[in-house]
Design a protein around this nucleic acid. Structure first.
Length: 259
DNA sequence: AATACTGTTACGGT
DNA sequence: AACCGTAACAGTAT
C-alpha cells in the first residue's frame, strides 16, 4: 500500500520498537518471492542485533550488526504488524521475533510483498537524497520524451514516488502530468524538484502527527488533488480524473502543459 | 452496498 | 531497441 512518506513513518516507528534488539528467529511462511533458502536467511540473520532500518525508495532495509541486510518491499497491499506472543494475521509472508519479545509480521493477501537477503543496490537516487538534485533531474528529463508523470513513477529514474504523490507533486509544481519531459523549461524543473521534496517531507510529518505509532495502513486525507472525495483543488479549480494503465491521474487546469 | 485502490512485472504490439 | 498500454496478482477499506 505505502508510498515513500508512509514508509518513512513506518521506518521511524519500527526503529522505535526494534533498534538494537537481537533477532531471535525469522520464519518464512510464503517463500514464493524469496530468492534464497529459508535456512540461508536464518543463518545470516538470526542472533544478530538490529543496527538500523533504512528506507531506500519503496523498500525498507533492516541492517544487522554483521552487515547483512533484510530487504522488504510491501508492494501494493503488504502490511506490517507487531505482535506479542503469536502472530495471528492471515496472509503472512514472514515473521520476525526479537529479543525484547516483540514480533513483527509482514503480510499480503495478494502474496506480492516480499523479503530479500542483501537486496541489490539501486541505481537511481532516492527522491529525498542529496543525489536527487536539480542537476540530475535536468539531465534525466532532457533525455526523455515520455510524459512527466510516467517519469516520476519510473523507479529507474527516481526512487520512492508512487501514483498518489506524483499527482500532488505535479499539482504543487503546477505542471500538467501530460507534459513531455524534455519540453519542461528550466524554471519549472526547479519548481518540480522543490515540489517533490516539499510534498514528500510534509506528508511524512502529517502522517506521524495524526498516527504517531503507524506501521501499516494509509493516511491520505490531506492530499491536495489525489483524493476521490475532492471536487476542487485548494485553488478552487475543478479536479479532472484520467484513467490509464489501471491507475488514476488527478489534475486541474491550473497545471501548465508543456509539449 | 457500492466504489476506489497506493506497485511491479510480463506480455504483446508498435 | 525503446516505448506503450493492459492484465494480473486477490482481496481490503470505507
Amino acid at each position: 500500500m505505502p508510498e515513500l512518506p508512509d514508509l518513512q513513518a513506518f521506518r521511524h516507528n519500527l526503529e522505535k520498537k526494534l533498534l538494537h534488539q537481537q533477532l531471535k528467529t525469522i520464519t518464512v511462511k510464503n517463500s514464493k518471492k524469496l530468492a534464497v533458502a529459508e535456512k540461508t536467511l536464518q543463518s545470516a540473520l538470526e542472533g544478530q542485533k538490529l543496527k538500523e532500518i533504512q528506507r531506500v525508495g519503496k523498500e525498507l532495509h533492516f541492517v544487522f550488526q554483521n552487515g547483512h541486510v533484510l530487504g522488504m518491499h510491501l508492494m501494493l497491499h503488504g502490511k506490517l504488524y507487531f505482535f506479542e506472543h503469536q502472530n495471528k494475521e492471515k496472509y503472512t509472508i514472514a515473521e520476525l521475533l526479537f529479543g525484547n519479545g516483540t514480533g513483527l509480521a509482514i503480510t499480503d493477501f495478494q502474496g506480492s510483498a516480499n523479503i530479500a537477503l542483501d537486496p541489490a543496490e539501486k541505481t537511481a537516487p532516492d527522491a529525498l537524497s542529496d543525489d536527487f538534485n536539480e542537476n540530475y533531474l535536468k539531465t534525466q528529463l532532457s533525455k526523455k520524451k515520455t510524459g512527466i508523470k510516467k517519469f516520476l513513477l519510473d523507479q529507474k529514474q527516481v526512487l520512492g514516488i508512487g501514483n498518489a504523490y506524483a499527482d500532488d507533486i505535479l499539482w504543487y509544481a503546477r505542471i500538467s502530468p501530460f507534459s513531455i519531459c524534455n519540453k519542461i523549461p528550466a524554471a519549472k524543473v526547479k519548481a518540480l524538484l522543490s515540489a517533490i521534496k516539499h510534498i514528500l517531507r510534509e506528508a511524512e510529518k502529517k502522517i506521524l502527527k495524526s498516527n504517531p505509532d503507524i506501521v501499516h495502513g494509509e493516511v491520505r486525507d490531506f492530499m491536495l488533488v489525489h483524493n476521490a472525495k475532492l471536487k476542487e483543488s485548494p485553488g478552487g479549480a475543478a479536479i479532472h480524473k484520467d484513467t490509464g494503465g489501471g491507475r488514476k491521474t488527478y489534475y486541474t487546469d491550473e497545471q501548465e502543459l508543456f509539449e
